[in-house]
Design a protein around this nucleic acid. Sequence first.
DNA 1: GTGATTATTTATCATTTGTTAAAGGAATTC
DNA 2: GAATTCCTTTAACAAATGATAAATAATCAC
Lengths: 187, 187
Amino acid sequence: MTELFDYFDKFLKLSDNTKKALAELCSNVTIKKNDTLQPFGHTCKTIYFLKSGIARIYYYKDGTDITECFAFEGNIIARVESLFTGKPSQKAIQILENAEIIAINATQLFKLYDTYPQIERLFRLIFETAYVDTLNRIEGIQFHSAEERYLDLLKRTEIVQKIPLKHIASYLGITQVSLSRIRATVK
Amino acid sequence: MTELFDYFDKFLKLSDNTKKALAELCSNVTIKKNDTLQPFGHTCKTIYFLKSGIARIYYYKDGTDITECFAFEGNIIARVESLFTGKPSQKAIQILENAEIIAINATQLFKLYDTYPQIERLFRLIFETAYVDTLNRIEGIQFHSAEERYLDLLKRTEIVQKIPLKHIASYLGITQVSLSRIRATVK
DNA sequence: GTGATTATTTATCATTTGTTAAAGGAATTC
DNA sequence: GAATTCCTTTAACAAATGATAAATAATCAC
């Protein structure tokens, strides 16, 4: 669990008994490439932390598979729109590279918010950061060409190389053909 | 202040003394069309609630004025990226239609988080909702044409009619010429 | 390894949006 | 109310991306 608490530490220093309470909600999951971590249609009740591997959140739009986001080693991933609204998620989580994951039981987590204000604060800070990242992503989508966005993604994580092109294309909001064309000119 | 507390009520029922503490951070502001509510370069320390009027957050990108978002009657507006990071904001808030505003002192607000967990929770819920809205906006930008996005914006608020075209265009991520063309075909 | 499946590239043409420039309207100032 | 400025539309052409189809390349199952 060290990796997870190191991650938490970056947001807020937790007291020992808060850490202990949190640790009780966590369980380890090992899951293989291409497997589904969370299926469509269920209300999201888990927040995941990736110790290793790659995951993506995706959904179907007019029959095509769209990747909403990727998550890499050392980051958390959750279907926020369901977690916060309590509505069933129209999105699924799939593993793209064999992963070691810590699953945090969100139902129990939210219950701890009353007893441990530190925990409520921790996750408030985590999601505030994610919110700001999302605002910046909008700027990226609206004011950069597909080529710029692709190069930017490459710059952020070279691990992207391991991900099938179609997922990267739908994440960037373009077709796979278009991305392939871009890569040809960039090389 | 009734409008503001009605707004809060939709997220969380507050106790009377919590409301009283909150009310002490609030002040009324009357501001005219085209005036600047918050300039560039300062760290954002205020959250605004619009009792009436229209406001927008904007910034300059390569010399052009870009509208990040609009706010209408009954909604809050804040430069979140500065509020949450404590860094100076590269964005400004401008009034587009004469407005009656309640200004919430965020510095004092954050201090109350320790004493009134209800207040921390209230704003956590408010911003969680805003976060989910932002995620949905990304979907809109990536998978709908400019025309669809324009019609969708019109559907959400007819007040948009009052806003100069250039602001709507930059909000939608297209040029003013392009938006004008779209409006010509839609009519 | 061979065949089958899946992923990626390439090519062609259509559509959308951007860029630039100019013209017509609306609003504001004096 | 005339002049000025700002806002919106129109037009012509360029660039980026989409759609479809076909050709390679890579991967997987047996």
